[in-house]
Amino acid sequence: MDRKGKGFTLLFLSPWLVGFLGFMLLPLLMALYWSFTNFDVLQAPQWVGLQNYVAIMHDATFWTAVRNTLYITVIGVPAGIIVGLGTAMLLEKPITGMGFYRAAIYLPAIVPPVAIAIIWLWILNPDYGLLNAILSVAHIKPLGWLADPYLAKISMLMMVVWGGTGQIMIIMLAGLKDVPMELYEAAMIDGAGWWKKFSRITLPMLGPVIFYNVVVGVIFYLQFFTQAFVVTANNLGAPVNSTLFYALYLYQNAFQFLKMGYAAAMAWILFIVIVTITLALFWINRKVVFYGGGQS
């Protein structure tokens, strides 16, 4: 390529390049350096070697946060995909009112996460909440949705799945449209039932789409923060640290306890875990998932 062309390319890349180097790579390396220091923001960081990492490994609260985070990830990712795929399959074939149904299911996906948390906080209110009112019709006693350590996690999952389904549904719908009709027709001629068609055709053909949602879902849940923060704003992680998720504990260390070095170490551990899991998922994907002819 000629000189002028090179300059042109560089010019077009430059905003991104400056941002990548200055606002991403540099902070990433700074965080790595601080993770080996004692740093309280006010005084210059002091080198302490691996001390932060050793302390983290012996920090019981850290492990609680890890367990809580894994818990919602392992339940939330499949739950979101099942609900998203289920709703997409209901909407797959043309039906009167399709536009309304699709908009109704998608709508929560655009509601700000903070508003979602606030709405659900009110729905889950033990004394005046809508959910307990609905349950009381079935003669179920009022439940302390956010007061019980086990229910509190379920509550978080409810609000996230409610808000996240729309996105997954739209992707699944697009994926379902790409499944060749001939496959179903051939299966019909062979006398295959609903389950067989679903498990032998739909699921394998949706492999790449499901895979994408797993990756996005895992990255999201490992960094899950907003709803948990808003719901327990006055007492982060309540009740008894049952909703203290990784990102929440990291925030506490950095901005409440001013243990920036410690938080930086936690952040780098999170970064490495996310990269490792993503690469592992891509590896599994290559082994298991079927990619149809049209895709690269």
Partner: peptide, 21 residues
């Protein structure tokens, strides 16, 4: 690929340095 890989960078990693910067 680098562009795509930046999606994996959690905000938690860069937020403290950005705050200080």
């Amino acid at each position: 690929y680098v562009v795509l890989a930046t999606v994996m960078i959690p905000f938690q990693v860069i937020m403290i340095p950005l705050y200080i910067m």
